[in-house]
Write a protein that binds this DNA or RNA. Structure first.
Lengths: 224, 224
DNA sequence: GTGACGCTTCGGCGCGCGCCGAAGTTTTCC
DNA sequence: GGAAAACTTCGGCGCGCGCCGAAGCGTCAC
């Protein structure tokens, strides 16, 4: 019965603490059990039980290292699903404090989504690539685009089953942006080149002056 | 806190009975409370409580008519979300009985998804339209496509906020197909013209001989 | 070794959910 | 009017979940 599987899946996320864990992990990084516990405001024992449940359901992946239990989303599929659920909920309600306002504005401007770029920045890059015929109709990479990525950013397609390029829905922009191996590569290269930098400790990123120039040169992208 | 909203949303679907309700309603029709109760194998009182919960959360819409309480998905957004969750779960495990096998094969061949066509049929129509430049990159209707739809199928874009054309993810084909007002219109016209017919009582549909000819004439579509 | 640290396991508490049957309300049918 | 049908409300049952604190276990630092 598919309904039962659906209910089981939903039940995984139907708890405030587990939901917080998953949203926290949307930044694509691996967190330790205790970090997640403090972030969600529960004790270590509670967190441990939740993590075990999420992991044995295959939604999270763990990597034990010494006395630490590192945990992250099992893969892009899971990140995708979470983004879709957030997209259904719609843009977050207007923030009440000044601090929260600037924080959410920063998030909307640019952020990482699991392992690729999202927000206005992610959408702008995707649009610019599509305008230059680097991306196809359905956000697959064109031959031209593959060559471009290889030349400019040293991209080599992975041998794994992971799609090279695929759309991911943006919950602030309500638009598709580039995910998949290519999206992840772009994100990591832009970080490595110092073209984008994380703002604070969250998922928000900003484009550096150097990055603005590079993006203009490469893609004709105007500063956001 | 967005995590709390996420948890609340997930909790809506985190029950076998409510999940069955929602999947049943994916056919886009309105069902009465008691129909859903028998379909899910619970008593009327239980069904009533679940429906109240789903409705007050805004996930379902109700229309009271005499002594009946008709209920349906609140809108395309909800259908979309359900399809995404099903897509995450992946293709249903191989059926064990012959009857179930033919039933699921029929579903994969063609079915309604909320109010438009899905399965191989839905994807094939979408692809054929894209190949003829009736649809754009991101599955929006081209000017050419709008004219074509108006001429051949008597389509007029709605005045509502509903998108004329948008992609919907197919959980059997893992491909996008045409949803939105245009997708809904195509589905209803194909039914009205007798080009497709429901198989049994579920969401599966088949193309009639008349429909095969018409689809070949209109879109160059070979029989599936 | 000794202690601190990170995590897990266990027992226990309390709440809330899902279910039912019975009784009540509203509508329809005759 | 009376009876039947569709649905709702209520009381009650039982289970399971989420939480914690305490105890236990492996790992790291000194």
């Amino acid at each position: 019965m598919p309904a039962d599987k659906l209910a089981d899946l939903a039940a995984l996320l139907a708890d405030r603490t587990r939901a917080r864990f998953c949203l926290t992990l949307l930044d694509g990084r691996a967190w330790t059990s205790s970090e997640l516990a403090t972030a969600a405001g529960v004790t270590a024992s509670t967190a441990s039980e939740h993590l075990t449940r999420l992991i044995s359901a295959g939604f999270l992946a763990e990597r034990r290292q010494g006395r630490h239990r590192y945990v992250q989303l099992a893969g892009p599929k899971e990140a995708d699903l979470l983004e879709h659920l957030l997209a259904y909920l719609g843009p977050a309600e207007p923030a009440k404090t000044l601090k929260a306002t600037t924080a959410s504005a920063a998030l909307a401007r640019g952020r990482t989504c699991y392992d690729h770029l999202a927000g206005r920045l992610g959408v702008a890059i995707t649009d610019a690539m599509a305008a230059r015929n680097l991306l196809d109709d359905d956000l697959t990479l064109t031959d031209h685009g593959l060559a471009w990525l290889t030349d400019t950013l040293g991209f080599t397609p992975p041998k794994t089953r992971r799609p090279v390029a695929k759309p991911c829905l943006d919950w602030t922009e309500r638009r598709s942006h580039l995910a998949g191996a290519a999206g992840a590569h772009i994100c990591s290269r832009l970080h490595a080149n110092g073209w984008v930098k994380p703002i604070g400790t969250g998922r928000a990123v900003k484009v550096t002056p150097k990055g603005e120039k590079a993006l203009r040169d490469l893609l004709g992208l105007a500063p956001l």
